[in-house]
């Protein structure tokens, strides 16, 4: 992750790039001389991304997961809340019954595990995306302000970040959630975001500090550009890459945090359907009926894997050193 903070390919004088890298850049620099079409750095990153198989693996998974989250009814006809005790979880999965209610078997209350896995996706994705959006906005804004203005603003923001950073993430979220009786998705989002914004704030602050020292920022100031223009035209576009990477990877972590909280009975609660709740429900039956645990847990892992892989692929694409 620290690699991405070097926003621009090392120059000949690049101290942090090291002599070897500088030399290699010097060699390759003339290779860039006005070749072909206009090519923005974002365009280059997209090109890199397109040529990474891992990106496609995670992208396909994510599109699928988003579709499931948005339209669960398209993927299963079964109702996840219908319990038919004749189907008690003694019914094993029918692995050949694709997309049928009994594909993954039934749980202790006779509910279709397949349907529950499908309907549980929405809560997880919403929590993950919701926390990430809130955290990126709040943390990004605070980090940007602290990094750009510096001085006492930076001192205060950084101290607040330090204080929040010192609180254990899960424990803190549990304490917050304990104060709420109604555990809807937005409550969980708020609880996780409450403590989660600090990482983004730190990353944003440091990349803004790097970006604001660049000569092109000085050049814009010399032209008489105002703070808004400098911040949004020059600093932010060049400071965004590390934040994007961290946010994508963190998204997966928030999803697993939600599952952990739900498992502990502090996160989402019935009637919301969540993989964490299902994993929790399955914990007593795991010896005899591992499938009850296996499918929600597998789905959870797959989702987290997809986001973290995407984050990795994005980081590689945005890392100028590989270019």
């Amino acid at each position: 992750m620290p690699d991405v903070t070097k926003t621009k390919a090392g120059t000949d004088t690049g101290v942090d790039a090291g002599p070897l890298q500088a030399a290699a850049d010097a060699v390759l620099a003339p290779g860039a001389v006005s070749q072909g079409k206009p090519r923005s750095l974002w365009g280059d990153a997209w090109y890199e991304l397109r040529h990474r198989p891992l990106f496609w693996v995670s992208a396909v998974l994510l599109v699928l997961l988003l579709a499931i989250a948005a339209f669960p009814g398209l993927f299963t006809g079964a109702n996840p809340r219908d319990g038919d005790l004749t189907n008690h979880f003694l019914t094993k999965p029918e692995l050949t019954h694709f997309f049928q209610a009994d594909w993954f078997g039934y749980d202790g209350q006779g509910r279709s595990i397949y349907a529950r896995v499908i309907y549980g996706t929405r809560a997880s994705i919403m929590v993950g995306v919701g926390v990430t959006v809130v955290v990126t906005l709040v943390g990004g804004l605070l980090g940007m302000v602290a990094g750009y203005f510096g001085g006492w603003i930076d001192s205060i923001v950084s101290r607040i970040v330090d204080i929040f950073f010192g609180l254990p993430f899960l424990l803190g979220s549990m304490v917050v959630l304990n104060a709420f009786t109604e555990r809807k998705v937005y409550v969980v989002i708020a609880a996780l975001a409450f403590l989660g914004w600090t990482t983004i704030a730190r990353v944003m602050r440091s990349s803004v500090i790097t970006a604001k020292q660049a000569d092109y920022v000085t050049a814009a100031r010399a032209l008489g550009a105002g703070t808004g223009r400098i911040l949004f035209r020059h600093v932010l576009p060049n400071a965004l890459a590390p934040t994007i990477v961290v946010a994508t990877i963190a998204l997966g972590a928030y999803i697993s945090a939600e599952a952990t909280l739900s498992f502990l009975g502090l996160g989402l609660a019935d009637p919301t359907i969540s993989w964490g709740i299902d994993i929790s429900d399955a914990k007593d039956a795991i010896r005899d009926n591992p499938h009850v645990m296996l499918f929600p847990a597998g789905m959870l892992s797959l989702t987290v894997f997809a986001f973290i892989t995407l984050g990795d692929a994005v980081r590689d694409a945005l890392d100028p050193k590989l270019r």
Binding site: A23, A26, V27, A29, P30, G31
Partner: peptide, 11 residues
Amino acid sequence: ESGSGKSVTAQ
């Protein structure tokens, strides 16, 4: 000059 290959040879 830069890109002449002088440093690459040394490396």
